Computed example of a mutant assay.
Amino acid sequence: MKLFSFLMLLLFTSALKVCAQNAQDTLDIKKVALAYIESQHKPNPKQMEDALHPRVVKRSVFKNKKANKDYVSEYSAENLVILAQTYNTNGDKFPKSPKKEVKLLDVSALTASVKLLADDWFDYMHIVKVNGEWKIINVLWQYNKIAEHQ
């Protein structure tokens, strides 16, 4: 009976290693999400580029007041690298100690969903493991104040 229990435990833990993240994956996923926001805090386009999959798309919904219609805004990897280079060059876009909280929503062997809470907005991210590295492939974001989407 002890041998059977041991074998079942061994089989179960082996399956977990294949299907779920390990401690290093958790650290790497958080590191990538933080690199995304920190590259904007202190302008660092290389840090942003390193965190992104080349086919990343960042989206949000805005309202065009003149047309009175909602539309989806999209940014590519190139746009995000330029954003990291230019957004906070005067150092006035974030508080002295900016908020940067990463919540892991779901993690699998090759994919992760996270929520990044910043000062004025939040980002939902899909992060993929490609060639052994975690990279951001999708971002869906929203301002905390919905009026900012006007």
Score class of each variant (00 low, 15 high):
residue 54 P to F: 06
residue 136 I to G: 01
residue 61 V to Y: 01
residue 48 M to I: 00
residue 39 S to A: 04
residue 103 K to L: 14
residue 99 K to L: 13
residue 143 Y to P: 07
residue 54 P to A: 05
residue 70 D to V: 07
residue 82 I to L: 09
residue 49 E to C: 00
residue 37 I to D: 05
residue 118 A to F: 00
residue 58 K to C: 12
residue 76 S to K: 00
residue 11 L to G: 05
residue 22 N to G: 13
residue 34 L to N: 06
residue 101 E to K: 14
residue 113 S to T: 12
residue 39 S to C: 00
residue 8 M to L: 15
residue 127 I to W: 00
residue 16 L to I: 13
residue 40 Q to H: 13
residue 78 E to H: 15
residue 31 K to A: 12
residue 142 Q to H: 08
residue 9 L to E: 07
residue 16 L to W: 11
residue 47 Q to Y: 04
residue 91 G to F: 05
residue 132 G to L: 10
residue 57 V to N: 03
residue 8 M to W: 14
residue 125 M to A: 06
residue 38 E to W: 10
residue 47 Q to S: 07
residue 120 D to R: 09
residue 39 S to E: 02
residue 98 P to N: 11
residue 21 Q to A: 15
residue 101 E to D: 14
residue 82 I to V: 11
residue 29 I to W: 01
residue 142 Q to E: 09
residue 28 D to I: 03
residue 75 Y to D: 15
residue 124 Y to P: 03
residue 88 N to C: 04
residue 144 N to R: 13
residue 137 I to Q: 08
residue 36 Y to K: 04
residue 118 A to K: 02
residue 114 V to S: 01
residue 38 E to T: 15
residue 124 Y to K: 06
residue 126 H to M: 12
residue 144 N to W: 04
residue 19 C to A: 14
residue 20 A to C: 11
residue 69 K to C: 07
residue 86 T to V: 05
residue 21 Q to R: 09
residue 134 W to A: 01
residue 92 D to R: 03
residue 96 K to Y: 01
residue 91 G to Q: 11
residue 9 L to F: 14
residue 10 L to Y: 03
residue 42 K to Y: 14
residue 6 F to S: 12
residue 125 M to R: 07
residue 104 L to A: 10
residue 95 P to K: 07
residue 47 Q to D: 02
residue 13 T to E: 08
residue 102 V to T: 03
residue 111 T to K: 06
residue 119 D to E: 10
residue 108 S to K: 05
residue 30 K to G: 07
residue 16 L to K: 07
residue 58 K to N: 13
residue 40 Q to K: 13
residue 15 A to H: 07
residue 73 S to I: 05
residue 66 K to E: 15
residue 82 I to N: 09
residue 87 Y to N: 02
residue 47 Q to N: 07
residue 50 D to V: 01
residue 66 K to R: 14
residue 136 I to N: 04
residue 127 I to F: 02
residue 69 K to P: 06
residue 74 E to K: 08
residue 53 H to A: 11
residue 82 I to F: 04
residue 147 A to Q: 10
residue 115 K to R: 15
residue 40 Q to E: 12
residue 72 V to A: 05
residue 74 E to F: 12
residue 136 I to A: 03
residue 79 N to F: 09
residue 122 F to K: 05
residue 51 A to W: 01
residue 23 A to V: 07
residue 108 S to F: 04
residue 126 H to W: 06
residue 43 P to W: 05
residue 73 S to W: 08
residue 15 A to Q: 10
residue 128 V to C: 12
residue 83 L to Q: 03
residue 79 N to L: 00
residue 43 P to C: 08
residue 3 L to M: 13
residue 128 V to R: 06
residue 10 L to R: 07
residue 142 Q to P: 02
residue 76 S to E: 02
residue 55 R to A: 10
residue 148 E to L: 05
residue 147 A to I: 09
residue 81 V to Y: 01
residue 129 K to N: 06
residue 58 K to L: 10
residue 15 A to T: 06
residue 75 Y to V: 03
